[in-house]
């Protein structure tokens, strides 16, 4: 792999993570409760919200899609 290609790859990963952080903040402040009623308000304390942030950063395209498409609450 050339240095130029590796540079693009690392920059791409950084951008992906930065966008993921934005989506994670949306989930932290209301997004989680929007797709899952059990996560609304006191149903999900701050420490639990912080714990799901890395996952949202890693899977943010899936979680953005869920914000708009998940109509039914999850099974549990």
């Amino acid at each position: 792999m050339s240095i130029e290609t590796a540079g693009y790859l690392v920059t791409g990963l950084g951008l992906y993570a930065a966008l993921g952080l934005v989506v994670a903040l949306i989930y932290m402040f209301g997004g989680a409760g929007r797709i899952d009623p059990a996560a609304k308000g006191k149903g999900m304390p701050l420490r639990a919200r912080l714990l799901i942030m890395p996952g949202v950063i890693g899977l943010w395209p899936v979680m953005v899609a869920k914000l708009f498409t998940q109509k039914e609450p999850p099974v549990s």
């Binding site: 797709i35 714990l51 799901i52 890693g58 099974v75």
Partner: peptide, 18 residues
């Protein structure tokens, strides 16, 4: 390993689906 650790909370099992 990161993705697995980051999605180990119950929230993920419920919202990604089993």
């Amino acid at each position: 390993l990161f993705l697995m650790a980051a999605t180990s909370h119950d929230f993920w099992n419920a919202n990604l689906g089993p």
